[in-house]
Design a protein around this nucleic acid. Structure first.
Lengths: 199, 199
DNA sequence: CAGGGAGGTTAGCGGTCGTTAACCTGGAGG
DNA sequence: CCTCCAGGTTAACGACCGCTAACCTCCCTG
């Protein structure tokens, strides 16, 4: 994994703060002045970097969906073919958990502010999300062949709900650290799939 | 269960439509004129029934949290003592699923628009939610005594995430009907808890 | 049958918000 | 050293939105 070491671009600062604010108070609940203030510039200065407030949300959501899908495809081809479907599923779960734990604001936005996008952007995000889901569905059905496709798809959505619950586990110190949380979530996801796949 | 047969109050109509609209486009994304239009009156007519837009959201959220907690307490004392903890947990899961399937907009609002409330209302809702969670935690720990309390609480939150994923299963016709969905969610929730509780 | 309140209506005020316009400035390049 | 542009600034506009004011109209009741 190529870890970034150079300083973040101003654009990246803005996106990061915008994501945090959008997740905290909702897209309509945040003003451009607040986003600007969060990165040390004021209001209209943002328009040197983005066409508008909508454009920030669009870039965030497309970016999230794209990164999720790309990561899942990489994991699939890295572990696919050479491994049992259990290992592939474990890898997918691990990737999603990493994402949910490291980018909570983005995970929150991901299924909350989709309808605020322009038609064209929303369709793109929906398409990326759908591909991501179908990729999971394929792996799950390989592991639990007796699971019908609609049920498998519902199960995948539900497990996403489970994994994306991390923003609600916000109380720091109460839970057994990042590693412990990740392991707990992982076990629960596997348990949920196993229960869904048992007839 | 005492089923309502009389016509819904105008207040109830408003609350129902407001819940739907808030869930669809977010609290700040919906204008009072839209809410009014959804019940056939226009804009300011709402103020004959509510003190303001905030008051509608507050009544919705307090109502949800209260009904969830009340229902859970009733189920606990109906099934508690006379039944094994498994039966109690099943009853809690069933109640939550009924709620998630029958009142999707409310379930969506429940963890999405809490921060838009006035301090006093938000504290009340948080308190009700916390009591609901703790009630689950108690039952879960009774069933899986080896599960530490923080882990049990995380597990409960995660299962809520799983059960509350129903708004994402919106495609009608794709899933095997309400009963099938309920049963699938139930099995997955039990599987997730079992996996969390296994050392 | 008078009267009054419940439940509407439209007009409009005041504040907020996204966006644009016009201007400024420091630093890199010829 | 001049120039120019990237990246800021403040002012202000126009739209929208929550809410109030003022008014209207049934319908129920004494």
């Amino acid at each position: 994994m190529a870890t970034r070491t150079d300083a973040p671009t101003r654009r990246e600062q803005i996106l990061k703060e915008a994501a945090r604010l959008f997740a905290e108070r909702g897209f309509h609940g945040v003003g451009v002045d607040e986003i600007g203030a969060a990165v040390g510039i004021s209001g209209p200065g943002l328009y040197r970097h983005f066409a508008g407030k909508d454009a920030m949300l669009a870039e965030l959501l497309v970016g999230i969906s794209g990164r999720l899908l790309t990561g899942a495809r990489r994991r699939l081809e890295e572990a696919g073919g050479v491994s049992a479907p259990e290992a592939v599923l474990d890898s997918l779960i691990e990737g999603h958990i990493d994402f949910a734990l490291d980018d909570r604001p983005l995970i929150t936005l991901h299924d909350r502010e989709l309808d605020r996008l322009r038609d064209t952007d929303r369709k793109l995000v929906r398409q990326l999300q759908r591909q991501y889901v179908e990729l999971w569905v394929g792996v799950v059905r390989e592991l639990y062949p007796e699971l019908a496709e609609p049920a498998a798809r519902s199960a995948v959505h539900s497990v996403f709900g489970l994994l994306n619950s991390t923003p609600h586990l916000t109380r720091p110190g109460s839970l057994p650290g990042r590693a412990g949380t990740a392991e707990l979530l992982h076990r629960m996801a596997r348990g949920a799939f196993a229960a869904a796949g048992s007839r």
